[in-house]
């Protein structure tokens, strides 16, 4: 990919694919409501991203093994 153009995702196709992939049947009306909700959700997905975020910002929750002997206390 060259230049500063960002690829334009086909949100409708992604939505349809994800609904199909879920394996859960939906009615036409539900699909319409979900499509609206999906747009809102994608807005939120953009909002949680931050340009230049450090790699050191890890995801919550953190999982670490208990120290040796922790279960014996």
């Amino acid at each position: 990919m060259s230049g500063d153009k960002k690829p334009v995702a086909d949100e409708d196709a992604i939505f349809e694919g994800m609904v199909r992939a879920s394996g859960v049947p939906v009615t036409d009306r539900e699909r319409k409501n979900l499509r609206t909700a999906y747009s809102a959700l994608m807005g939120m997905a953009a909002q949680v991203r931050k340009s230049g975020r450090s790699w050191e910002v890890r995801m919550m929750p953190n999982f670490t093994p208990k120290p040796p002997g922790a279960d014996d206390r």
Partner: peptide, 28 residues
């Protein structure tokens, strides 16, 4: 019930990368 099913269905539309970025924002 359709309402509960659809509310949960929203979760099927969240990609793994979106989920992880949300958990990172949660850290901040």
């Amino acid at each position: 019930g359709p309402l509960a099913r659809n509310r949960m269905m929203l979760g099927s539309l969240v990609r793994a990368v979106d989920y992880i970025q949300a958990q990172r924002r949660r850290t901040e």
